[in-house]
Amino acid sequence: MRDPKVLIVGAGPAGLAAAAELTKRGVSDILIIDRDDAPGGLPRFCAHPGFGIGYSAIPRFGPEFSARLVRAVEDKNVRILCSTTMTALDNGPAVSITGPECGYRIIKPRTVILATGIREANRGNRMVPGDRPEAGVLTTGLLQQMVARSVPFPAAMKSIVVVGTEHVSFSAIWTAHHAGLKVRMMVDDGPRISSFRPVGWLAKAIGIDIRLRTHVAAIKARDNRVSGIVVDGPRGTETIACDGVVFTAGWIPEVAAVATGPVKVDGQTGGLAVNRAGLTNVPGVFAAGNVLSPLKASGSCAIQGRRVGLSVAKYLGSQS
């Protein structure tokens, strides 16, 4: 395998939009790697509308937005390698990757764009006390992957509580609703719903009890399954019976693969630190999308990917 001119890590909205912009600027020889088994990033698992706002002419369903981003780089001298993981990034830039097609190797592209996205803080990361059942404690990501991959839910899981009221929390509710789960309650520490207000009205209309200024004090389990959660809020401490709990949002930029290397992390955002052009402290290494600072919608990630794609095209032009 030859070293590509540009290596993009992450085939989500930011990475794919960066690739599209690079090809438009005449840059060829681009390799995109993604650790998942298909390109498209997180929107792929969100089968509801509202994706690509600001980037696409009209908002799309998640999977459709992903598919369009992938199509935009097809046949344009862009190679996408899935099931391929970056294991380290050093000065050079020198990137260690491993995957079934490429094996374990170190490649030396002229530039790298890190577009590794984010993940949600799970129950352990949030240190929520209580029992630790084998089944029934999820994040939006796991819930949506289970639905998308047709992995059956635990048999007893019928009614769930969703923790958080961000856009993604309602994405979780959409998925749960369509998968036949009843959402009993939404719980949020904050004083108001973080997503758009009308979404909250809609949730209430389908019978979801929304509790604000309320936090999850403990998870209860019976026979290795969730039996309820203890919540603490203005109404005091209550135990809510349910057989699943979905932790949503609590975004953490996915920087683990580079955290032990020379690329600097911003102490404030927890994401990678970059200048206005999207360049990190390591020469030739750029970053775009949610890996910089969390909570950006897919459209904003794609717009930023496009901008960084342009920066990289200019960078390569000035180098040659």
Binding site: T85, G103, Y104
Partner: peptide, 23 residues
């Protein structure tokens, strides 16, 4: 295993990452 040429050579499934956090 994912960095072990011998293992990978015998079977590329050792490079196909399932758990990305622990690799």
């Amino acid at each position: 295993p994912w960095a072990d040429p011998e293992k990978i050579g015998a079977d590329p499934a050792y490079t196909d990452m399932l758990c990305h956090c622990e690799r």
